[in-house]
């Protein structure tokens, strides 16, 4: 099958960008989207042209490196998958596919489809950790944790930090990411001592990085490859309100 591609090309963060058209690109349905891009790059290199720059690492949906907005949707059509898990069988012969990078002030374009997501790293540095010495992994039954809490913490912890939530949000808000990261620690006993200061510090850093505010559109939840829900956002807000009201220090 053949597809037409419109891929965003941009030489650097401040350089103007534009779509480059590739028509009649030969693909097989079994190819992943990134393998398709690899083929495009092989052709470009053969012609002595600059390949399309994009991030990827594990190519199995666990590392969070890949990501682009395909036909207006972060990580492309289909729910709960990363760009590397998208396959060409999701498209029809003759389709024109538009590919562009995450768009957010906090995620400047490095080149082509690659964006700088170190704003996420700085949010993690602000509070996405536990300072208590926890030693080596304890016996699973040493600290009893209820099944609902364990499940909720685990679901939040599946966040791979890909940034699709920001890319999909009409406001480029990072609330789903921040709420998942503060939630997964805040739900577990080890995370309790810093539960409220963590939430505050992460939100402060998030705001400082220039992300937008949450308007509860729910686009983040729909785009999240791990299906993390907006319930975590409500939970983060509860933590902040509890801290602000003084109820958390009692």
């Amino acid at each position: 099958m053949k597809v037409n591609l419109r891929i965003w090309r941009q030489k650097g963060p401040d350089a103007p960008g534009a779509f480059q058209d590739f028509s009649g690109v030969e693909v097989v349905p079994e190819m992943s989207f990134l393998e398709m891009l690899d083929e495009v790059n092989r052709d470009l290199e053969a012609k002595g042209q600059e390949p399309v720059v994009f991030d990827s690492d594990c190519r199995e949906g666990i590392c969070g490196s890949c990501g682009a907005v395909v036909d207006g949707t972060a990580h492309g059509p289909g729910r709960q998958q990363t760009l590397c898990q998208l396959h060409m069988r999701s498209f029809q012969d003759g389709d024109t596919i538009t590919v562009e990078p995450w768009r957010a002030a906090a995620f400047p374009v490095v080149r082509d489809l690659m964006v700088d997501r170190s704003a996420f790293d700085r949010i993690i540095q602000a509070g996405g950790y536990v300072t208590a010495r926890t030693g080596s992994a304890p016996d699973a039954n040493a600290v009893p944790i209820g099944k609902p809490e364990a499940d909720a913490a685990f679901d939040a912890a599946t966040c791979i930090g890909c940034g699709a939530c920001v890319a999909a949000c009409p406001n480029a808000s990072a609330m789903l990411f921040v709420s998942a990261k503060s939630g997964h620690l805040g739900l577990l006993p080890q995370g309790q001592p810093q539960r409220y200061s963590r939430a505050e510090a992460m939100v402060q850093t998030m705001d400082g990085e220039g992300f937008g505010g949450c308007s509860n559109h729910g686009e983040c939840e729909a785009a999240c490859p791990k299906g993390i829900g907006v319930s975590y956002i409500a939970r983060l807000n509860r933590d902040l309100l509890r801290a602000a009201s003084g109820a958390a220090s009692k």
Binding site: D71, G72, E100, P170, G212, S215, G218, E219
Partner: peptide
């Protein structure tokens, strides 16, 4: 204040458009 912030959080719009998957017209029209 929030609208101004949200606008500046995405200074460059999606050139190919962004598809809504979950939000409503009501939410977009607040």
């Amino acid at each position: 204040g929030l609208t101004a912030r949200n606008r500046s959080a995405r200074p460059v719009a999606y050139a190919g458009g962004r598809k809504d998957a979950a939000t409503t017209y009501a939410a977009r029209f607040m």
